[in-house]
Design a binder for these strands. Structure first.
Lengths: 260, 260
DNA sequence: ACCTGAACACCGTTCAAGT
DNA sequence: ACCTGAACACCGTTCAAGT
């Protein structure tokens, strides 16, 4: 029962399904029925909770993803979630695993391994960025959930197919995942800092101007590379990052073989 | 005045410094005095607030770094901080700048540029890690504060001294900083997830065992590289990361020159 | 077994009021 | 100009109680 009843707008009282007998009369007898107007959602399940959590995430970002808001969206109270999920931390892990599961996994092909790595990490990055700063939920986590394990297996298999050494793949896999998450998190943070698109454009224009005007005596190098720093969009920077990592892995891997 | 007065334990009423005349009598006249027992700390300043914030950070991590706790440590209320700092977000920026300022900046030397980069980013990483997950405060931030600008200038100058192209330095600088912050954040997060050192050791042993036991049919690559994944400590992984980035930058930079 | 309301111990920020 | 207490609108989690 809502504590205060807002005026019904339009089609009068269709929702009040049982008419009371009237003033001065006792309440009418009732057939037993489900204790609450069924509040639309079905019984609580982990999958349903994760789905609701992702909806909240899309609206508010990770910091706004609270147990209370998720519960609200499911028409219940926060305490009810604890029967299905140990707490906020586990819910974030489940959300992250669900998002990783949306990345398509290729059949490793040594002829196209670079392309395959670029594709996988770009997809991964895109999925994360499309859910605000969701990437935060993945940082500092060792892959042990089903979808993160499957993705780690495929990504490392592609790297091995490219001829990188076991050692380089083992160490590089971690770093590549860290890079994807950190990039996505940074990108997601930007629109988390509570700015309108207009403010945001203004802010970037300011940053651009700021770097262009850096005094060349105190900041000779930054001033010189300023055009190159502000001249690339997020996607170009991400692509550069992946390329430099792969080039580095190849060089280190080759150096290892040469040492044998 | 406390709403309810707990029984004084032991040494009776030493703290009630002004004895009331007694029941039925008006309150005794008082000399004007400082409204509060002087609470030890001097007047609020930005520097003092940042110092207190770092102390709180060291005790609780970024998530526990609240305006209320910082104020508490300064013997005041949270609202008082807003006269010196626009809010929590700005305070985090100030804390990050202060920490970056503790990194020693070398004179760029083209003969030792790799060593200089390794040294700078290791110092940076070490400073961040020594303050829990402080690195979180630096992510998603474009260097504009004094110490972050100075560090960015020096780091990019060292990279230029190493012969890397303007484009590679401009794009790589960002990535290198992101890598340092993300690594430090991950490392800091581990002891943030609220575990005792014993729990932590047990957890890592579990992870180790988990990877060692991965079924080889479903996870052939992960199973094969498991020893290499769990066999390196955080410092080795960080060093590998920096080396691979530098190797990548050199390769990409060389490829650019070759294309000219 | 699952769900609930109420409570506990917290948050960041604002604002009228004091000095 | 600086500081304050109280208030507002939030948090995650626990727990006794209900069904």
């Amino acid at each position: 029962m809502p504590p205060s009843r807002p005026e019904s707008t339009g089609s009068a009282d269709v929702e009040r399904r049982s008419a009371a007998p009237g003033p001065g009369l006792p309440p009418a007898p009732r057939l037993p029925r489900r204790r609450e107007p069924p509040t639309r959602r079905t019984a609580l399940t982990v999958a349903g909770i994760v789905e609701a959590a992702i909806e909240v995430l899309d609206e508010t970002g990770v910091s706004g993803l609270s147990m209370r808001r998720v519960a609200d969206r499911l028409g219940t109270g926060a305490a009810s979630l604890y029967a299905h999920v140990s707490g906020r931390e586990e819910l974030l892990e489940l959300v992250f695993d669900e998002l990783v599961g949306r990345v398509e996994l290729p059949e490793p092909d040594s002829a196209r391994w670079r392309e395959q790595v670029h594709r996988m990490v770009s997809d991964f990055h895109a999925v994360l960025v499309s859910h605000r700063d969701a990437a935060l939920a993945g940082m500092g986590r060792i892959p042990t959930s089903p979808n993160t394990l499957a993705a780690a297996e495929t990504l490392s298999a592609v790297m091995r197919a490219g001829g990188l050494s076991e050692r380089v793949v083992a160490l590089g896999l971690d770093q590549l995942i860290l890079f994807v998450c950190a990039s996505a998190f940074e990108q997601g943070l930007v629109d988390e800092r509570g700015m309108s698109p207009d403010d945001l454009a203004a802010y970037f224009a300011e940053v651009h101007a700021f770097y262009d005007r850096l005094p060349t005596d105190r900041f000779p190098t930054l001033a010189a590379i300023a055009p190159d720093m502000t001249g690339h969009d997020a996607q170009a920077r991400f692509r550069f990052g992946v390329s430099s990592l792969l080039a580095g892995y190849e060089a280190l891997s080759a150096a290892e073989s040469a040492a044998d």
